[in-house]
Nucleic acid binder design. Structure first.
Length: 415
DNA sequence: TCTGGGGTCCTAGGACCC
DNA sequence: TCTGGGGTCCTAGGACCC
């Protein structure tokens, strides 16, 4: 007998835009977009004009001249997103949050308390609506993947339950791009073979699929198309990397631009790493040139690091090698740093991770100690007075800030 | 006339070791 | 000394997701 459908996927509808309409009633029923240069979220009224997230502001205005742009109440996004997830947590502790506005839950263990999964899903929707004032769609199915597809089909403000005995009938009619992992490139590749629905993909011989998409993707999509992917819920997944980037317009690739930008990025990342005692061994930088092509370079160290200045130094060296390898590129439009190979937990009592060649592990190293002490002091002052109080802030460095730090904060994953 | 920021996972080649 | 195979790690790039 098939397992029962007990996995829920809950997804707040047009989240940022819905919060703005909640906070300002005069915006309700109107096409609005959150953002400015880029649309971060569009209300359903705006979506009716073809506007969607990621679109440039100018393009959106062309599609809908009466479109209203609203500033982001980022603190409220965070608060309401947390509150919605907490409602789910009132039913089961098995919750896997995947972003600010989206989570999986397994209610197999709590049906004796709250009723069938469909009833629990309906109760969650009612409570989020009445207590928070926000629309949320929920999909219910036997697997995570199918539950996620169901919630997409349920939008806006709906509930779709896929019973275990009607899974393939439901799934096979839908377009391939609803599958997790099928983006524009894969969709086009499949279309070239005459595949546009999940059913057509399912009936494709495994060999053709793997030839088309590679062994891993081919096997994965094949399993998804038959709903044979019993991926378990992971309530507490640890982050595998932490990064930051800054689009800087078009700037000359010179020290005056590069150094302060990298320092700011390294500061954001290293502060997070220190806060969670998770230094990392691999530093990756990305440089995007004026024509939007980008190049990455990385280095893996023997000893994990989380000191701001040491991270900034490695990043700068990597950027220099990129520029040396591309001598004709003199204009850059973005710099990014990412740290991966994160330690699970670094016990400071046992060992001090300073990094930077020979000075590592040398307790008497003056440079290492000085940097360590400076980081600690800055972290402490910020804990008391806020992040802008001291350090390598963008304001202090005279950097233009295209995106407010509050937005960056809510996009960060918990380390 | 060029669009943000923070992430995950996969691929393919090469170095290196056994 | 030559040949082969397997495994692991590193690096660069790319697709995709929210």
């Amino acid at each position: 007998m098939a397992t029962a459908a007990t996995i829920l996927h809950a997804d707040l509808d047009a989240f940022y835009a819905s919060v703005e309409q909640l906070l300002d009633p005069s915006l309700r029923g109107k096409p609005i977009a959150v953002g400015g240069g880029v649309v971060l979220a569009a209300s359903y009224e705006a979506k009716a004009f073809g506007i969607h997230g990621g679109m440039s502001g100018r393009q959106a205005r062309e599609l809908c001249p009466q479109l209203t742009f609203v500033g982001g109440h980022f603190r409220d996004y965070e608060r309401l997103g947390d509150a919605a997830i907490k409602v789910i947590g009132d039913f089961t502790p098995l919750v896997e949050r995947i972003s600010i506005d989206e989570a999986f839950a397994d209610v197999a263990g709590c049906t004796h308390l709250f009723g069938a999964p469909a009833e629990i899903a309906a109760a969650i929707r009612r409570r989020v609506r009445s207590e928070l004032g926000l629309p949320i769609s929920v999909g219910v199915a036997r697997t995570k993947h199918l539950a996620k597809i169901a919630s997409q089909v349920a939008k806006p403000d709906g509930l779709v339950v896929v019973d275990a005995d009607t899974e393939l009938e439901f799934l096979h009619e839908l377009p391939v791009e609803l599958m997790w992992g099928v983006g524009p490139v894969t969709k086009a590749r499949l279309a070239a073979s005459g595949v546009s629905t999940i059913g057509q993909l399912a009936r494709l011989p495994g060999r053709s699929l793997e030839r088309l998409l590679g062994p891993a993707a081919g096997e994965k999509l094949g399993a998804l198309a038959w709903n044979r992917d019993p991926r378990p819920l992971k309530p507490h997944r640890r982050a595998r990397s932490a990064g930051a980037q800054s689009a800087i317009g078009r700037k000359p690739a010179v020290e005056r631009i590069i150094r302060p930008t990298l320092l700011h990025l390294a500061d954001r990342i290293a502060t997070r790493l220190r806060a969670k005692s998770r230094p990392g061994r691999t530093v990756t930088v990305r440089v995007r040139f004026a024509d939007l092509r980008s190049v990455t370079r990385s280095i893996t160290l023997d000893i994990p690091i989380f000191a701001t200045l040491i991270l900034a130094d490695y990043a700068e060296r990597l950027v220099r090698t990129i520029l040396a390898d591309h001598p004709h590129e003199r204009t850059i439009s973005l710099l990014a740093i990412s740290v991966s190979h994160l330690e699970e937990h670094w016990d400071l009592e046992l060992e001090l991770p300073f990094g930077l060649e020979g000075e590592a592990r040398r307790p008497g190293s003056r440079l290492g100690m000085a940097r360590w002490a400076a980081d600690c002091a800055i972290d402490k002052i910020r804990d008391r007075f806020g992040r802008e109080a001291i350090g390598y802030g963008s304001a202090a460095l005279g950097l233009s800030r295209s995106v407010p730090d509050e937005l960056r904060n809510i996009a960060e994953k918990e380390l």
